[in-house]
């Protein structure tokens, strides 16, 4: 019980700090960085749902991130600002649809084959954007305006204002976190967590596991699409690199850094990467070498990621994690 209280106390403090952040630190650079961390956090949580809780390791998760972003760019085809109420559902539907197709074709495989097939699909999208004149090839697409959240004809929440944009992203971050937490508590969530540990055992209980894996894949893909939508809104720029496999790869590194199967771990991982990418170039020009060494050290000494470090300090003990077992 003590642990639960300490945990919820800790989360409340973090939550309060996130809300007060624009007033605590009035530097727009840091607000910008935090917005980036939160978006990357949503993206990473969606992959954690797939990798950590369902046991599907995907190297093509960036495909959906790109679909979410490009769909937003597409809905901007005219110079007028797009209506948020139209653009977001469109982005989410497109990502869900693509996730259904890729998922349906991929989940029948496992292990290295699953990695390869998802990698191939991700790269397919990357080259599709790169070669397509419709999507402006490698030049990408500039979004001249941010989506407008219209109530009637009144733009209630102007996303051009960076504090507004921050709260908009923070709102989505909290929604996604609570949504995934809730899903994991439902019978569906329990079944996918069972699949993650031992799929044939779940099938032996009478569950058609491919269906459950597909639904999980679609949920994760849709949320990755949401992250892509938010990132495109945030940066005002969409390029094929959204879907490059490097994006999916770095996301897996973020999961490892933060700690899989915790939801908040990947967010810590995202923060670690964003901050390191920001700090290290100030130390040396060869900062990527330093980043690589740091990642190796974290993986070696904190097998459950930086989450482990936090829970050791805050909750006086490593987090309880279940290991995958085999029949």
């Amino acid at each position: 019980m003590v642990i639960i209280n300490r945990k919820s106390f800790f989360f409340s403090i973090i939550f309060l700090l996130l809300i007060l952040f624009p007033w605590i630190i009035e530097d727009s650079f840091y607000l910008e960085q935090l917005t980036r961390i939160l978006i990357l956090g949503i993206f990473a949580m969606s992959l954690d749902f797939l990798v950590g809780y369902t046991g599907i390791v995907s190297l093509g998760h960036a495909a959906f991130y790109g679909v979410g972003a490009y769909t937003l760019a597409y809905s901007f085809q005219s110079t007028d600002a797009t209506n948020f109420w139209y653009a977001l559902p469109l982005s989410l539907t497109a990502s869900a649809l693509i996730a259904t197709i890729i998922g349906w074709l991929s989940i029948r495989t496992s292990g290295i084959y699953l990695l390869m097939i998802t990698l191939a699909f991700g790269q397919m999208f990357y080259f599709f954007y790169l070669e397509s004149s419709y999507f402006n090839g490698s030049d990408g697409i500039f979004l001249l305006n941010k989506p407008e959240i219209l109530f009637g004809s009144y733009n209630l929440f102007d996303l051009e204002n960076e504090v507004n944009l921050y709260f908009f992203v923070l709102g989505w971050f909290i929604i996604v976190f609570l949504l995934l937490k809730t899903i994991l508590k439902t019978p569906f969530g329990q079944v996918i967590q069972g699949i993650c540990v031992n799929e044939s055992r779940v099938r032996a209980l009478g569950y058609p596991t491919p269906r459950y894996k597909l639904i999980s894949f679609v949920i994760a893909g849709t949320l990755a699409g949401l992250a892509g939508f938010l990132e495109a809104t945030h940066t005002g720029f969409v390029t094929p690199s959204y879907s490059h496999w490097h994006q999916s790869g770095i996301l897996l590194v973020i999961l490892m850094l933060g700690g899989v199967r915790t939801l908040y771990g990947p967010v810590l991982g995202a923060a670690t990467i964003v901050l390191l990418e920001d700090l290290l170039p100030e130390i040396t020009d060869h900062w990527k070498l330093l980043l690589g060494i740091l990642i190796i050290l974290i993986v070696l000494f904190l097998p459950n990621g930086t989450t482990d470090l936090f829970s050791r300090i805050l909750f006086r003990g490593p987090i309880q994690k279940a290991n995958k077992d085999h029949e």
Partner: peptide, 24 residues
């Protein structure tokens, strides 16, 4: 037929290594 179809017919299996889900 797939395992789940057999399970749905009312056949239950208690495996050798105690198939409890550790994460639930």
């Amino acid at each position: 037929v797939p395992v789940q179809k057999i399970a749905q017919q009312g056949i239950a299996f208690v495996p050798e290594n105690r198939g409890v889900f550790p994460n639930l």
